[in-house]
Amino acid sequence: MKISEIEKLQPESPDVLPSQERRTLLKIGLAVTGVYLGGKVLSLTSATNAFASGVVPRLGEYPYSPHYSMVIREHLCIDCELCMEACVETNDVPEYGYRTKILERRRDIIGGDQETIFMPVLCNHCNRPPCVRVCPTTATWKDKATGIVVMKNSRCIGCKTCMAACPYNARYFHEERRAVDKCNFCWDTRLSKGDTNTACAEACPADVRVFGDLSDPNSRVFSLLHTPETIVWVLRPESGALPNIYYINK
């Protein structure tokens, strides 16, 4: 068909389409859905064989070794920000950037008072990282051994798509390096040099941040997450990213 002919055609947007036409289409749609999904959509009985396994991987199902993760004992955080300071110093984070932050929320409590809850946030080193998926130049990836989401600055073209994709807002653009920067659990500055702890966890005076290998049953992160009666949650579970930063209230 020629362009000149197309130009003469009536548009098919909803405002010009006759409603009869729309109804017919809707009916076809419903018929097709009905045929293919049969009783599944309409059956409202509960699935009796379903069970909730929660946000923590089941025993023995840790994809990495060591499977680095961090447990945040949220109620103990007092926003002294020594973790942020230690991170900036260790990882050469510029003034406008951040690798970790403390968020704050407040809620009403009995007696007409308000309670403040501080929430440390950092890269969640997701098992299905949306940032890695969207990077057009493979400048960021999940390390095969440790599961750390790492960056290769020389490959980064600064398109910032990863920043937009991250459900945790854990990335920023480092102007001087002309590359996106993010938390890498102090891999280049500490872990690869034999240190076993991140700078932020080491600096915390309230024992909020606990870093370690989740695949090691003797590690503290393991025991914190698998202690009876502990409630474990992650941020934005609906993203499906399977984060590795866990929050507990004990």
Binding site: H75, C77, I78, D79, C80, I102, E115, T116, F118
Partner: peptide, 12 residues
């Protein structure tokens, strides 16, 4: 207990 009642933090 109730750490943030007195520890209002840098933000506070």
């Amino acid at each position: 207990t109730r750490c943030t009642t007195c520890h209002i933090g840098v933000r506070g």
